[in-house]
Computed example of a mutant assay.
Amino acid sequence: MNKRWHLFELEDQNWFPHVVRQGMMDVLRFLITVLGMYKPIVPLLRQGLQQTGQRQIIDLCAGAGGGILQVWQELEKQSGQPVQVTVTDKFPNVAAYSYLQAQSNGAIDYAEQSVDATAVPAELKGFRTVFSAFHHFKPAMAQAILQDAVRQNQGIGVFEGASKKWHELLLVWLVFPWVILLITPFIRPFTWSRLFFTYVLPLIPLGVVWDGTVSILRMYTPEHLQAMVQKLNAPHYTWQIGRAKHWSGTGVLYLIGYPL
């Protein structure tokens, strides 16, 4: 499935209810953490931090911060050094970020203001990460995210927790709805709105199934990313592109770049 279809995702639409968008992001954060989806890329991210001398991560397009708590924990465990994280998004999920801040004893902070990943404020300096969100952007915008990191001489890591395989679509259609119904009462921080939009008016599971399907169809392949990098004006950068194997058999797509 090498072709990319840029269909629309509900969470990208300005008219889509913010409370439902937040609920969908909370579901994904919970699933990503329980499955340990991004554990395989921690050694690669650690290497990028070492090469750039950074202990600060700027997490872009964070949604509800899916996976960043576990990634931060693994980074500190493997490196034996403290790592600070600032999560940002165009539509900040402050309730989720406050929860992550509390869970990390303040090591994970957040920006309350909207942050554009193609024009990150200069004061937000650190190794940039994009988890489960790069597919939201059309090629020109995706390349602009990479180019902005290069322009500001910051390292960047892009990670997608799927392989763009047909069997993943079947999982989204046949398994995800039932899983969401089972896990929703256990998602923290607890909100009544999440229960309402799951069990009474099931916009959250329907939204996750639709956006999950479109996400897989939108996803870039390593070949797409390689072509994108070649168009960048970044002769002083080194790039790593590939798939890291997850225990489930899914390949976690990664692109990591930093100045030499």
Rank of each mutant, 00 (worst) to 15 (best):
N2C: 04
K3Q: 13
F8A: 09
E9T: 14
E11A: 07
E11F: 12
W15P: 05
V20F: 04
M24S: 07
M25F: 15
V27Y: 10
L28M: 15
F30Q: 08
I32K: 00
T33L: 01
V34E: 13
L35R: 09
L35N: 12
M37K: 07
M37Q: 03
Y38G: 05
V42P: 09
L44T: 14
L44S: 15
L45E: 03
R46S: 14
Q47W: 06
Q50A: 15
Q50C: 09
Q51T: 10
I57G: 11
D59F: 08
D59W: 13
D59H: 11
G63P: 05
G66P: 01
G66M: 06
W72P: 01
W72A: 13
Q73G: 03
E74W: 08
L75I: 12
E76R: 14
Q78H: 07
Q78A: 09
G80H: 07
V85W: 04
K90L: 14
F91N: 04
P92G: 09
P92I: 05
N93P: 03
V94H: 03
A95I: 13
Y97W: 00
A102S: 08
Q103E: 12
E112S: 13
V115N: 06
P121L: 12
E123D: 05
K125W: 00
K125Q: 14
G126Q: 09
V130M: 14
F131Y: 09
H135E: 02
H136E: 00
P139K: 12
P139F: 10
A140Y: 03
A142V: 12
A142R: 09
A142Y: 10
I145D: 02
A149C: 02
R151A: 15
R151W: 00
Q154D: 07
G155I: 10
S163F: 04
S163L: 03
K165S: 14
H167F: 15
L169R: 08
V172E: 04
W173A: 07
V179H: 05
V179L: 15
L181R: 15
L182T: 06
I183N: 06
T184Q: 15
P189R: 05
S193I: 08
L195I: 13
L195F: 11
F196M: 11
L201M: 10
L201H: 01
P202W: 02
P205E: 10
P205K: 05
D211P: 09
D211A: 11
G212R: 07
I216H: 07
L217P: 01
L217G: 10
E223K: 11
L225P: 01
Q230E: 11
P235Y: 00
H236D: 14
G242T: 05
K245A: 13
S248F: 02
L253E: 02
I256Q: 01
G257S: 11
L260M: 14
